[in-house]
């Protein structure tokens, strides 16, 4: 149980640092996916710990929302790339004063 949670928070930490460090929008997005997956692992572990399936249901919903989020996020990245010819998060600064 504890080791699954440890792995889960390690993956979450790596994903969070990745979001902060990486500059390519797609890689940042992959790091967000990594964080979502890490929480899923925690959900499934706790479901086994407590002996009911609510945790697995929650993980299932996280997957559904993640799929929708990926679709929209990648569409946004593609449309930004079309106008700015760059997928770097530093380049998207049109709103800056």
């Amino acid at each position: 149980m504890t080791e699954y949670i440890t792995l889960s928070f390690l993956l979450f930490t790596i994903g969070a640092v990745g979001v902060l460090v990486r500059r390519n929008a797609i890689v940042v997005f992959m790091c967000v996916e990594l964080m979502l997956n890490a929480t899923n692992l925690a959900f499934v572990s706790f479901a086994r710990q407590h002996g009911n399936l609510d945790g697995q249901t929650a993980a299932f919903f996280v997957m559904v929302v993640a799929a929708a989020e990926v679709v929209i996020g990648l569409a946004i990245i593609v449309s930004i790339y079309r106008t700015r010819r760059s997928a770097s998060v530093d380049e998207a600064n049109l709103l800056k004063a």
Partner: peptide, 30 residues
């Protein structure tokens, strides 16, 4: 951890659909 359904969904949705989408966009962008 006794979650065979999530095992299948993880393979199909994540490694199948989402990673494929990521690679597809990577090919589009360069």
């Amino acid at each position: 951890q006794d979650a065979p359904f999530l095992f299948a969904v993880q393979i199909i949705v994540y490694t199948g659909a989402i990673m494929m989408l990521f690679l597809f966009v990577l090919m589009l962008i360069g």
